[in-house]
Amino acid sequence: MNVLGIPKQILALAFIFTIIIAALVVARMLFIPPSFGRYGHYRADAVDEVIAQEINYAGYEACIECHDEIYEPKEKSHHKGVSCEVCHGPAAKHVQAPDEFVPGAPRKRGYCPLCHDYNPSRPTGFPQIITELHNPGKACMTCHDPHNPLLPHTPEECSACHREIANTKRVSHHASLACVRCHTVPDEHLVHPKFALAQAPVEREFCGECHAKDADTGRDVPRIDLDTHGERYLCWDCHYPHHPEAR
């Protein structure tokens, strides 16, 4: 039964396994994509295929190249930094064939509220409206120029922007106080809120004007002794002035 002392079983199986392994080796040589493993365990050509993807958004720079007459005033307005394609949609085709493809513009009332409809989750100070109450039926563009979106008239109420704070204050003991009772608001703040911030009180004595023992205010106003009441702290460290629940 032996050839060179090796059992026949082993010879037969060795033969079969050699064929299988050889087939696998040949298959690997034939079927592994040529660019596989050039830079790592992947097909290097795949990167080029990803790169070959078509561009739809041309980018701000491309728009500015031609439309500087819109860009310049817009860059000085509140919509500074808002890319043209945010509202006008992807415009790479327009860059390649300016006359054949003209990007649209949202002229209806529905689009602007995507950013400007009141939503408590939006950062405080971001200009928002309650769309149902804000000049119903009118297109936004009748009053506001999206390329220079100044307000037709400055809002009289602070709550136009600071709605969340206003809502809180409304249900608090400070409901009857006007915002300007505590905050000094420069006129510029109404036009450029980020550049000219409103000022808040900085001293304990300010609260003391109403709440100190000897303050000249109504009898139902809670009183404290400024010298003994939490002296190391500022009032607003413990009491949120817009909802000053005292415990």
Binding site: Q53, I55, N56, Y57, G59, Y60, G81, S83, V86, C115
Partner: peptide, 16 residues
């Protein structure tokens, strides 16, 4: 495909 051409990702481009 935008990065390699010096453009920003679309989401960054349009973030107002």
């Amino acid at each position: 495909h935008r990065l390699v051409r010096g453009l920003l990702p679309a989401c960054v481009e349009v973030c107002p």
